[in-house]
Computed example of a mutant assay.
Amino acid sequence: MTFSIVARCADTGMFGVAVSSSSPAVAARCAHARAGVGVVASQNVTDPALGIRALDLMALGASAPQTIDVLRASSGHMEYRQVLSVDCKGNSAIHSGPRALGTWAEAKGQDVACGGNLLANPDVPARMVEAFAASSGHLGDRLVAVMKAALAAGGEAGPVRSAGMKLVDQVSWPVADLRVDWSENCPIEDLSSLWTIYKPQLADYVTRALDPSAAPSYGVPGDE
Rank of each mutant, 00 (worst) to 15 (best):
T2C: 11
S4Y: 06
I5L: 10
I5R: 04
A7G: 02
A7W: 02
C9A: 07
V17W: 02
S21E: 12
S21T: 14
S23E: 09
S23F: 13
A31Y: 00
A31M: 02
H32T: 04
A33V: 08
A35R: 06
A35S: 15
G38R: 03
V39A: 15
S42I: 04
V45W: 14
P48G: 04
A49Y: 05
L50S: 13
G51R: 06
I52G: 07
I52C: 05
G61F: 10
A64L: 03
I68G: 08
L71M: 12
A73Q: 14
G76Y: 04
R81N: 09
R81Q: 09
L84P: 03
L84R: 04
S85V: 06
V86R: 04
D87T: 00
D87I: 00
N91T: 03
S92L: 01
A93G: 02
H95K: 04
P98Q: 12
R99K: 15
G102F: 13
W104K: 15
A107I: 08
G109I: 01
C114P: 03
C114M: 05
G115Y: 10
L118G: 01
A120Q: 15
N121W: 14
N121Y: 12
N121F: 14
P122T: 13
D123A: 15
A126K: 13
A126F: 01
E130M: 01
M147T: 08
L151N: 08
G154S: 07
G154M: 07
G154I: 09
A157F: 15
G158E: 14
V160E: 11
S162T: 09
M165L: 11
W173E: 03
P174I: 05
V175Y: 08
E184D: 09
E189G: 08
L194S: 04
I197C: 06
I197R: 13
Y198C: 02
K199H: 04
K199P: 00
P200M: 12
A203K: 15
Y205H: 13
V206Y: 05
L210M: 15
L210W: 12
S213W: 07
Y218A: 13
P221N: 02
